[in-house]
């Protein structure tokens, strides 16, 4: 199982029955592949749909039915579409139960940076700033390090996406919950020691008792 699959499977366990969830482009979209069978989740895409499903078979795509990354999707029974202002009223207005976003950095205060690297890469924030400001829960799904460098840092060196503390960070090594007191190490991945997590993290981690092994959806 590669890092991305571990992360997506663990994030999938955060999904709750009968909730509305937005998945960011990239790694977060993989979460949709591992929704536990016993629950029903409606996925929203910020370009204007609730209730989309997997890409249709080749040749059956609809050019007017895509996700926020421009990829073809299908509409499940009960799906509905809407314009961008409505889409962001759902996001900003507290109607979205959870969003899963990728991250470049998360710091000791639980702040997320995920939209630009000054002077290098300026893709833009797209819907990320609204999602972090407005969703009830913000789960960051990202690899623990980038080119060997920790992405969980003492203080952000990149511009923050919002002033709000994110709810949970899931990596291929650990599950970390930002709290008022700091980053709490909740779980470690199977076969990964607490020391290994600490060595790959440059922010202080609060470790309380035994750190549980990450349950991964099958």
């Amino acid at each position: 199982m590669d890092a991305k699959e571990i992360i997506a499977r663990r994030v999938a366990r955060e999904l709750r029955d009968r909730t509305l969830v937005n998945l960011g482009i990239g790694l977060p979209t993989l979460v949709a592949c591992y929704v536990p069978e016993e629950i029903s989740v409606a996925f929203q895409s910020e370009n204007g749909i609730i209730g989309f499903g997997a890409p249709p078979p080749e040749g059956m795509e609809d050019p007017h039915l895509t996700d926020a990354g421009g990829g073809f999707i299908s509409a499940l029974p009960g799906a509905m579409s809407f314009d961008s202002a409505t889409s962001f009223a759902l996001i900003r207005g507290g109607h979205l139960d959870m969003t899963v976003l990728g991250g470049l950095q998360v710091d000791a205060k639980g702040l997320l940076a995920n939209w630009m690297v000054p002077g290098k890469l300026v893709p833009g924030m797209g819907g990320a700033m609204d999602l972090v400001a407005g969703a009830k829960r913000v789960v960051v799904a990202m690899q623990h390090t980038a080119k060997g460098k920790p992405k969980i840092v003492e203080a952000l060196s990149l511009p923050p996406t919002a002033a709000r503390r994110v709810s949970l960070v899931v990596t291929e090594l650990a599950v970390i919950e930002p709290t008022e007191d700091g980053l709490v190490l909740r779980e470690r991945a199977p076969g990964v020691s607490v020391e290994e997590v600490v060595a790959n993290t440059s922010a202080p981690l609060i470790i309380q008792g035994d750190v549980l092994e990450m349950p991964i959806a099958s």
Binding site: N47, G48, I49, H64, D67, S81, S84, A85
Partner: peptide, 11 residues
């Protein structure tokens, strides 16, 4: 409009 092709057009 159709499906996700509405997006910013109506506003």
């Amino acid at each position: 409009y159709r499906l996700t092709a509405a997006n910013f057009n109506p506003v």
